[in-house]
Design a protein around this nucleic acid. Sequence first.
RNA 1: GCCCCCAUCGACUAGCGGUCCAGGUCGCGGCCCUUUCAAGGCCGUAGCACGGGUUCGAAUCCCGUUGGGGGCACCA
Length: 419
Amino acid sequence: MSVIVRMAPSPTGFLHIGNVRTFLFNWLYARHEGGQIRLRIENTDTAREVAEATDFIQESLQWLGIDWDGEITFQLDRMDDCRRVAEQLVAEGKAYEDEGAIRFRMPDEGVTAWDDVIRGRVEVPNESIEDLVLVRSDGRPTYNFASPMEDVWDGITHVIRGEDHISNTPKQLNIIRAVGGDLPTYAHCPNVNGGDGKKLSKRHGAVGVDEFRNAGYLPPALMNFLALLGWAPDGETTVMSRDELVERFELARVSPSPAQFDYAKLDWLNGVYQRALAPEAFAHALVLWLGEHGYEWDAERVRKAAPLVQEKISRLGEFPSFAGFLFQDVEPASVDGGAEVVAAAGDALAELEPFTAESIESALRGVLERLGLKPRQGFQPIRVAVTGSKVSPGLFESIELLGRETTLARLRRAAATAA
RNA sequence: GCCCCCAUCGACUAGCGGUCCAGGUCGCGGCCCUUUCAAGGCCGUAGCACGGGUUCGAAUCCCGUUGGGGGCACCA
């Protein structure tokens, strides 16, 4: 039997990174097994802004590299089918009317159990399961009714979802049995928490896929990181491409215990991917990112600056603050005590030919030698004068890119201010 | 309160009865390299929650305790 799984977000706005991790497990499993994955919007309740949120969800998924098969379906579209089934259940005595609503009759004795791919056997005493509402008094089916029904109608073979659904599972199992549907296999993924072990939320950092995109993370890096939250192919491997993840993913190896989202590790991994990019590819990504985020900086110059920062920043979003001095004027910073070397540097560069990183370096080293300064002492005031910061890309390459005119202006201004 | 789930370094994890005085990665600390910051190289730091069993032998199996988390809606 061919595998069919589904991603079932509710259209409440942005896509939470924790949900995306669960979707990723669905996707990896489907692709690994050569099966199908559906995108189903669970909009039984939120009728507002559905279209917009749905677009947003698709965009985020596509950006990350998670695709799906077939048309998107909406839970709301199957209201009538759900109602019909509910009425049938009432006719069969398996459900009953209650103040205008329809309730399902849960078994009172024994246990409802299933073999969870991730957790093993889970058993829940039936006496702890209440008769649940199938259809509200206004005629709308509830989530716990619509969701399993859709799983049956869509032929879902594996329901892979968050652990917060564990307690819904026995309810849905009983409903599917009552309608005579095939029971899917269930796999409940662990939660993704923040650094304090609490549910990941805004106060921990970025949580929406769009936020990670805006911060300048690379999709394959984020995917790689997410896959490692609750799953590992072995004890050694950590860097894996999209294809490699698909090839190696095993649902049964997903851990049942919750994981914490480590932003520092994500940054490291993103840096790994960034450095592995061909220089042109990195430059291209940088130009695109800047364009999408409102920077109208000269693309040609961005491409030239890219190699200077590729191994120094860990995400695209760090570029503006790290290399912005190449594109806009800087706040004059204090070169305390460095007025002399700054002024001398200006003189040395004024007539320098050619004006290349190599010649700039030897000219400036000559200046330091004459003044009896160590590189550390001499270059730092120059750096601060030229870049406006104590931290920057390589000084000589930066000066070459900046150009003689701007460099001299900044050096002279700094020398004058310090004097 | 009731039900369910979880438990290896600070974090992500490997381990599925002996090869583990527990391995990898991030982080952190130190050293090297070095024009800053990174990157890179080397070294180091730190863990099987606790208590009972089972067994010749337990991080690995069972029970309990403690601690976390989730759920108990005419929300999804």
